[in-house]
């Protein structure tokens, strides 16, 4: 039985094709058309496996773009999908911290992949992947280099939470001659403490899986673990947790939309 999960995020679109214990994935930028990105991810998955639409029992769409992809059988929020995917990726995980392009979420689960409670950041971009991108640009760096640049540096205090004000703050810190690594470490800490504050209100997770694009940044992960005081892990497939969760839910509760 083949099922597919398509996670159309604000920055990247992830697709997972699941069959028994095997699964394959694709990742591509969402760009300006979530609908097109979702469709391309789906077709690429089918093409790689030599399958056609009718071979797939159920396709579940998730992520902010889930409403714009027409070929899915059902849409489920990324919160439910991340909880399910995390359970598959990290046995025993009972909390998921997901920091994506435009929002961050903390999800408390029952340890079996079901959501017990969750919190999401407010509607601004503070403490998200977009925030890191803006700051990286102000520092003349690529977002993928941030962790390396900040390694071992003593974090400087960043007081602004708003993306726009934080960018101004970073620029003035640079003007004062503060070391770039220290500024980046400060930014990492500010992202982590913002998310940790959300997590505190949900209750204690024992084992935390860190997912979403920002999970690729080890600097943020380190501060998260420190702020949360719990083991906070990233697995190689962390970014795919939502799409994988969608494919798993498609297999467990398959639905077929009339077409």
């Amino acid at each position: 039985m083949y099922t597919v999960g398509i996670d159309v995020g604000s920055v990247t679109t992830k697709g997972v094709l699941l069959n028994g214990r095997d699964w394959r994935h694709v990742i591509r930028p969402t760009g300006c058309s979530p609908r097109q990105a979702g469709l391309e991810a789906f077709e690429e998955l089918l093409g790689q496996a030599g399958l056609v639409r009718d071979d797939i029992s159920c396709v579940i769409g998730t992520g902010y773009g889930r409403i714009s992809i027409p070929f899915i059988d059902k849409a489920i929020t990324e919160i439910t999908c991340h909880a399910r995917g995390a359970h598959h990726l990290l046995e025993g995980a009972d909390m998921v911290v997901d920091i994506g392009g435009q929002d961050s979420k903390v999800i408390l689960t029952d340890g079996r992949g079901n959501v017990v409670n969750f919190a999401m950041n407010d509607k601004c971009a503070a403490g998200t992947g977009r925030f890191l991108e803006v700051i990286a640009a102000a520092l003349g760096a690529d977002v993928s280099e941030l962790a390396d640049l900040a390694r071992g540096a003593e974090p400087v205090q960043i007081s602004s939470m708003c993306t726009v004000f934080a960018e101004s703050e970073v620029i003035s810190l640079l003007a004062q001659g503060v070391d770039r690594g220290r500024i980046i470490a400060g930014i990492h800490r500010s992202v982590a403490s913002r998310v940790a504050a959300m997590a505190e209100r949900l209750g204690k997770g024992g084992l935390i899986l860190f997912t979403g694009g920002v999970a690729k940044n080890d600097g943020v992960r380190e501060f998260l673990a420190r702020e949360l005081g719990r083991e906070t892990l990233v697995v190689p497939e962390s970014q795919l947790a939502g799409a994988l969760g969608a494919a798993l839910l498609a297999r467990e509760k398959p639905v077929r939309k009339e077409r």
């Binding site: 902010y64 409403i67 489920i76 929020t77 990324e78 919160i79 439910t80 929002d103 079901n114 959501v115 017990v116 409670n117 969750f118 999401m120 509607k123």
Partner: peptide, 15 residues
């Protein structure tokens, strides 16, 4: 914030 609200509300209902 309709879409962000929709995500929170849908996830709550799914829960």
């Amino acid at each position: 914030d309709i879409e962000q609200l929709k995500t929170r509300i849908s996830a709550f209902i799914e829960m």
